[in-house]
Amino acid sequence: MYKIVAKRKLNEAVTLMEVEAPYIAAKAKAGQFIIFRIDQYGERVPLTIADHDAEKGTVTIIFQAVGSSTKALSQLNEGDEILDFVGPLGNATEIEGYKNVCVIGGGVGCAIAYPSAKALHEAGAHVDMIAGFRNKDIVILEDEMRAVSDNLYVTTDDGSYGEKGFVTNKLQALIDAGNKYDLVIAIGPLPMMKFLSEVTRPYGIKTLVSLNPIMIDGTGMCGGCRVTVGGKIRFACVDGPDFDGHEVDFDELMRRNAYYKAQERESANHECRILKMGDAAKEE
């Protein structure tokens, strides 16, 4: 059992939790993920590690309550326990050798973009961050992101906060203004990552995206998380989760992630996380 030592609501649907998991906290690196299982009937759900504190032995997760497991998790409180919590899984985001980086988060994807920005910032890179949200009400982690970036640009689709527009427009504007990025990291809903990769493609800017396909074990055993990258089948759990955005077959992945859409619709207790993913972010 893994104890929740802190809980904070970041907005109506997004929750931050610090979970006692000393072995994972000692090992975790930006970009890696954990898998949790809420109770004996729950699914194994992957969540990216948002932060970790080796000294306190805690791992921070930030998630949107969209599926039945994340909804149940959001109902737990400080002092409650999660049945299973395993990690750190996947490879760390590569941060070595980059000087000028733009890290982009979409919605709850900012929770995953944040640790990458933090790691790059600590490694001495110049970090610009673009954080996109639908509207003012769901803006999260603004102070945290500001603290680990040289410039933070917040955009909202409706203009209710920060700049009006999409993150793709902002990235284009920054490139047009003469910013020479040697790396772009894009984390958010699949369509967002797909279009951001298209923005950078003509300039040949290396673009990393963090993928979160359906998976069970997270150790390479089920193959459910396979994605086509550069024409080859890769397993997101062990070969990723970060991949070259210019090589990923996003359309195929969007179809695969919709795998169980029909079943989730059938179930009265389930709200479809995939449908939600399209507008807000992935279930992270």
Binding site: T219, G220, M221, C222, G223, G224, T228, D249, E252
Partner: peptide
């Protein structure tokens, strides 16, 4: 535990599983 695939066309279609 690592499943093999045949590397044929269509293995990433919805409805294709590894036995694992």
């Amino acid at each position: 535990g690592l499943p093999s695939f045949m590397n044929i066309e269509g293995e990433s279609l919805i409805g294709v599983y590894s036995a694992n």
